[in-house]
Design a binder for these strands. Structure first.
Length: 270
DNA sequence: CGCGACTCCTGCCGGC
DNA sequence: TGCCGGCAGGAGTCGC
């Protein structure tokens, strides 16, 4: 799925087409998403004007005067703009039809994504307990170091925990640890303050560069403008098992941590 | 509370 | 060529 850079790319892609638009009609073809789409979502959204499109963690927020739609893309979701009468293909689960004659369309083959309505997104149960945004000033090495004291979990799983920091998914966790030179298996509580400084900086750098490249397209991710992400070409370790490390040329290793694949260089990351 | 395993779902790819 | 197992960008929930 979309990690933070892909969600941000989607946000930027759709914003020009939907900000200031009134939602004329909501068409939901499949309510069985990660959570069933509530029966009142149509009533809440129809007639509302989208004032802005924001992002918190991996959630897209379509803000209106009375509240917000919360869209999550799960593992396989994407949003894009279509002309209103475009026939829906398989797995295109809902449309928000706009004043302009266009529609925001949501596609998600695996249905791990979701659509919610809330009066106050920051107090919504999916959002209220999340950790800081990685690109904010609140997130730094000192913060990571403090939160990690006493924690035995591997640092890779630690930085993928949304209660610690949001937006770092499987790709960017591996990439950030490589850039910081930290072994992903290392216990979070046994990493120095200084190395957490490097890790926080690496996370910021990797995410910022990925956003600039329009995200990473492994299989089927396309931003709101229909373009794939180009960060794939800049991946140092992710999905590069047995290929030479970009630094030392030794083969990139792949292991499993917490049911997720991790890629790293056994030589460069200690 | 922290942590690990499991779960939801479809598509695709590699191996036999 | 066709079938089958395994794996995939997330993350809530449950049990210990």
């Amino acid at each position: 799925m979309p990690e933070l850079p892909e969600v941000e790319t989607s946000r930027r892609g759709i914003a020009p087409y939907i900000e200031g638009q009134r939602i004329d009609r909501v068409v939901i073809r499949e309510r069985r998403l990660r959570w069933p789409v509530a029966r009142d979502v149509e009533d809440r959204l129809e007639g509302a004007t989208i004032d802005s499109v924001a992002r918190r963690a991996k959630y897209l927020l379509l803000n209106t005067a009375d509240g917000s739609a919360i869209i999550h893309l799960g593992m396989s979701g994407s949003v894009f703009i279509v002309e209103r009468d475009t026939p829906a293909a398989l797995h295109e689960h809902f449309d928000l039809e706009l004043d302009s004659g266009q529609a925001l369309r949501f596609r998600d083959p695996r249905r791990f994504g979701s659509l919610h309505w809330t009066n106050d997104p920051m107090q919504h149960w999916l959002i209220r307990d999340l950790g800081p945004e990685p690109l904010s000033e609140a997130f730094d090495g000192e913060y990571l170091w403090r939160k990690s004291r006493g924690r035995k979990v591997a640092v890779k799983q630690f930085i993928m925990n949304a209660a610690i920091v949001v937006g770092v998914g499987n790709i960017y966790a591996s990439e950030s640890l490589f850039l910081a030179g930290i072994n992903p298996k290392r216990a979070a509580g046994r990493i120095s303050r200084q190395r957490y400084g490097q890790l926080a900086a690496a996370i910021k750098q990797v995410l910022a560069k990925a956003i600039k490249a329009g995200g990473t397209t492994l299989r089927d991710f396309y931003g709101g403008d229909g373009e794939p992400g180009y960060f794939r070409h800049e991946l140092a370790v992710y999905d590069r098992e047995d290929e030479p490390c970009v630094t030392c040329r030794s083969p990139v290793a792949a292991i499993v941590q917490g049911q997720r694949r991790t890629y790293y260089c056994k030589n460069c990351q200690t």
